[in-house]
C-alpha cells in the first residue's frame, strides 16, 4: 500500500493523513451513524417510496410547515404567555402537551422549538455542506499536496470528540443562535469534506472525467459538471443524517447548559426547562423527547432510502 515517500513534505502529509489504512471505516460520529443506519439495508430497494418513507416524508413536511407557520398559528406565545399559577401541569384539553414550569404551553413551545431547532440544524448542515463540500471536492480533485494538506486538516478536526468541540466553540463565542449554528457547522464541515473527498477521489479516476478533460473542459467545469452530480447523492444522504445529528447535538448542548440562551425556544431548551419537574410533570420532557425521536428516526430513514436509491456504498465514504 505505502509508496516510498519522495520528500519530507509528503512524509509530513502522510504522517498526518492516515485515512488509507482504514478508508472503509467510518471516521466520525456522523459517518459512523450513517454506516450503522445503512448497515441493515440489503441492497438498492425497488423504485418508488415505501409506506415508511411516505410516513417519514409526511412527518418532516408537517414539522417544517408548523415551524414556518409558527407565528401565524393560533397558539400561545412560547415565551411570554406565562401563567405561574398553572405551572408544571400535565396534559389537559386546552393544553394537550401540558404547561411548563412557568405555565407556558408546551405544545406551542415545541412548535416554536421546531422553528429554531430545525433552523439551527439545517443552517449548520447547509453551511457544512457548502464549505465542506467545496473543500472535499477540491482536495479530492487536486490530489497531490493540496489534497493531502486539506485531508490532514479534516482528519485532525475529526480526531476530536465532536460534542466537546461544539461545547468549546459555543462557550468561547457565546450562547446565541448564530454561534450555536456556527459551532455545529464547524463540526459538520470536516465530516462532509471527508465524504466528498473520498467520493471525489473515486469518481475522478473514471474515464468520462478524463474524457471531459481531454475535450478541453476546465478544472472548475469538470468538477461541477462531471464529478459533483455523481458525488451529490453520497453528500445528501450524509447531510440528512447530519441534520438528525445536529438536532440531537443542539438539544445536548442545551441540556448541559451550554446551548442557546433560554429566551430562545429550542427543543433543547424545552427539555432543559422540564428537567426540574421530572416528578411533577414528566410530560414537559416526554413530549419534546418524543418529537426529537420521531424526527431523528424520519431523517435516518430518509437518509437510508436516499442511500439505497442512489446505491451509495459505505466503502465510498
Amino acid at each position: 500500500m505505502r509508496d516510498p515517500l519522495p520528500d519530507h513534505g509528503e512524509e509530513l502529509i502522510h504522517l498526518m493523513h492516515d485515512s488509507e489504512a482504514r478508508s472503509d471505516v467510518p471516521a466520525d460520529s456522523v459517518t459512523q451513524h450513517f454506516a450503522a443506519v445503512s448497515a441493515g439495508t440489503v441492497k438498492a430497494k425497488k423504485k418508488g417510496l415505501t409506506i415508511g418513507a411516505w410516513i417519514a416524508v409526511g412527518w418532516m413536511t408537517l414539522l417544517i410547515l408548523a415551524a414556518i407557520l409558527a407565528p401565524v398559528l393560533p397558539i400561545p406565545d412560547p415565551i411570554n404567555d406565562a401563567n405561574p399559577l398553572k405551572a408544571a401541569q400535565g396534559p389537559t384539553l386546552n393544553h394537550i402537551f401540558g404547561l411548563d414550569g412557568n405555565g407556558r404551553d408546551v405544545f406551542s413551545r415545541i412548535i416554536w422549538g421546531a422553528r429554531n431547532s430545525l433552523f439551527i440544524a439545517f443552517a449548520a448542515v447547509i453551511t457544512g455542506f457548502i464549505i465542506g463540500g467545496a473543500l472535499g471536492l477540491i482536495s479530492g480533485y487536486f490530489k497531490g499536496r493540496v489534497g493531502g494538506v486539506l485531508g490532514a486538516l479534516t482528519d485532525i478536526l475529526l480526531a476530536f470528540p465532536q460534542l466537546v468541540l461544539a461545547l468549546a466553540v459555543v462557550s468561547f463565542l457565546g450562547r446565541t443562535v448564530f454561534n450555536v449554528t456556527m459551532a455545529l457547522a464547524i463540526v459538520s464541515i470536516p465530516i462532509l469534506a471527508r465524504i466528498t473527498r473520498a467520493s471525489t477521489l473515486s469518481w475522478s479516476e473514471r474515464d468520462f472525467v478524463t474524457a471531459a478533460r481531454a475535450q478541453g473542459a476546465g478544472h472548475i467545469r469538470t468538477m461541477l459538471r462531471e464529478i459533483l452530480p455523481n458525488v451529490l447523492p453520497a453528500m445528501l444522504s450524509i447531510a440528512l443524517l447530519g441534520i438528525a445529528v445536529a438536532i440531537v447535538a443542539e438539544a445536548s448542548l442545551s441540556l448541559v447548559g451550554a446551548g442557546v440562551k433560554p429566551d430562545v425556544t429550542t427543543w433543547g431548551n424545552v427539555i432543559f426547562s422540564g428537567q426540574a419537574y421530572l416528578r411533577e410533570a414528566p410530560s414537559m420532557v416526554l413530549f419534546p423527547s418524543m418529537v426529537i425521536f420521531f424526527t431523528v428516526y424520519a431523517l435516518n430513514y430518509l437518509g437510508d432510502v436516499l442511500r439505497a436509491t442512489f446505491d451509495v456504498r459505505e466503502s465510498a465514504l
Binding site: 451513524h33 443506519v37 445536548s252 427539555i271 423527547s289 425521536f293 420521531f294 435516518n300
Partner: peptide
C-alpha cells in the same frame, strides 16, 4: 434502527 434514533439524553 429505532434505538439509533433515540438520543442518549
Amino acid at each position: 434502527f429505532a434505538l439509533l434514533a433515540l438520543p442518549n439524553f
